[in-house]
Write a protein that binds this DNA or RNA. Structure first.
Length: 376
RNA sequence: GGAUGGGUAUGCCCAGUGGCGAGGGCAGCGGACUGUAAAUCCGUUACAAAGAAACACCGCAGGUUCGAGUCCUGCCCCAUCCA
């Protein structure tokens, strides 16, 4: 059950109650594609960095270790020893990211496994079945994420198919939740809006999927090559057509600045590989912009990544030390950087919620963006 | 003193059948990354520079050749072994 606590313009301070606990929004979900946050981050670590929701991936877990294995082990929560909410992405994004390894048909998508090349078929029903086996808190609808440079005709056809797929997802999810041996009979389903950068396609698609009464709605296919202005424009134009009595999720986005802009436009769920991937690559988020710890100027820098930060890295270690770890390819280096970045994101979301609670989101957003001096 | 194997651009390690304006790896330096095929990828690492204009001590010096990093001679240095 989704409950809006407060609004400021279109920005929403809300909460979503699930069988795995309540999610306070706006929220940033921490990406752990293969049932692990890359960078040697344990489930235990997540508790120390304010993680509310972990995100895993249907396609990746289907390929390895196999969703039926996870089901036999009691579901994803038990498997990774995490009892808070988990959102599973449907595999729709892999239709985009594994572009060279798949063929799209009306019934679904034929992949060649990126692990061993074997043929895999995934359609709406299969995606729902896998996600039901995983028993995540929130399942995402199986969609196609078209390229941002796809032409209008292609996008129109793709979006129509994604809408038909959503009906099939809904139906299959309903069937699965009714089965006696389903692990999570209260699994939530989020539908996904597509339409590249064409406002009218986005809006008509939003209206169409809104009728299907999903538990939440996502904007997909953004931050895949279009400009920030185009992305903000699409969010602004489309969000009003997604049911605002349901959570709104902007998939795969983004930078801290992207998130602030999207919260302002009514989005309350986010996820992005930036904090984890950039962390592994030595790029650290701070309130004064992003720093690259590989740079020689940090060789003798005895300060923490960010003064005053209470993440596990900053509480104890210096930039110089972490730089050394990164350069020496010591696993601890990546780990500390990922922990810092996730802590930064999760803390920013906490600040956003607090600002919304206090009716001061606009000024919070301005001062945060000013602090980061537009570098992010 | 003798034997053998080596010395390749900017730190290190190495490739290089007479067509080489010499290739790769590491290290260094910088950049990219948005529902993760990413602890990855890209750039850069003599000078000059977009021109049929000029221009590198491949340990050093000669030689053979149209042409030598490559073949020959001598020398220098390094490693290992023998005295």
């Amino acid at each position: 059950m989704y409950k809006i606590l407060k609004t400021e313009g279109r920005a929403k301070r809300a909460m979503l109650e699930t069988v795995h606990g309540t999610i306070q929004t706006p929220v940033f979900m921490n990406v752990g594609t293969a049932a692990a946050i890359k960078g040697a981050v344990s489930t235990e670590d997540l508790e120390g960095i304010k993680t509310q929701v972990e995100l895993s991936n249907t396609y990746h877990l289907h390929v390895r270790p196999g969703d039926t294995i996870i089901r036999q082990l009691g579901g994803l929560h038990k498997f990774m020893s995490w009892d808070k909410p988990i959102l599973t992405d449907s595999g729709g994004f892999q239709v985009f990211s594994l572009a060279g390894l798949r063929r799209i048909k009306e019934e679904g998508v034929y992949f060649n496994s990126h692990i061993d090349g074997r043929k895999i078929f995934m359609g709406p029903e299969e995606s729902m079945q896998i996600q039901s086996n995983l028993a995540s808190t929130i399942a995402m609808a199986f969609d196609e994420c078209p390229s941002s440079v796809a032409d209008r005709h292609y996008v129109e056809a793709s979006v129509a198919r994604t809408a038909r797929w959503l009906e099939r997802c809904k139906k299959e999810m309903h069937r699965l939740c009714g089965l006696e041996d389903t692990i999570n009979k209260k699994q939530l389903l989020f539908g996904i809006n597509q339409g590249a950068i064409y406002d009218d396609i986005r809006i008509s698609h939003a209206m169409r999927i809104a009728e299907l009464e999903c538990d939440g709605y996502a904007l997909g296919g953004l931050a895949v090559g279009e400009s920030h202005e185009q992305m903000y424009h699409v969010i602004e134009e489309t969000v009003p057509y997604l049911p605002q009595n349901k959570p709104t999720y902007l998939m795969g986005v983004g930078t801290p600045a992207n998130i602030l802009e999207a919260v302002e436009r009514g989005v309350d769920f986010f996820d992005c590989v930036y904090p984890t991937r950039n962390g592994r690559h030595g790029h650290l988020y701070t309130n004064r912009g992003k720093i690259n710890l590989f740079n020689a100027k940090y060789e003798l820098d005895n300060r923490p990544i960010e003064e005053g930060c209470s993440c596990p890295a900053c509480r104890r270690y210096s930039r110089a030390y972490i730089r050394h770890l990164l350069k020496a390819k010591e696993m601890l280096g990546m780990r500390l950087c990922v922990l810092h970045n996730l802590y930064f994101y999760n803390t920013m979301m906490e600040e956003i919620r607090q600002a919304l609670d206090e009716g001061g989101f606009a000024s919070y957003k301005k001062s945060k963006l000013d602090g980061m001096s537009g570098h992010l």
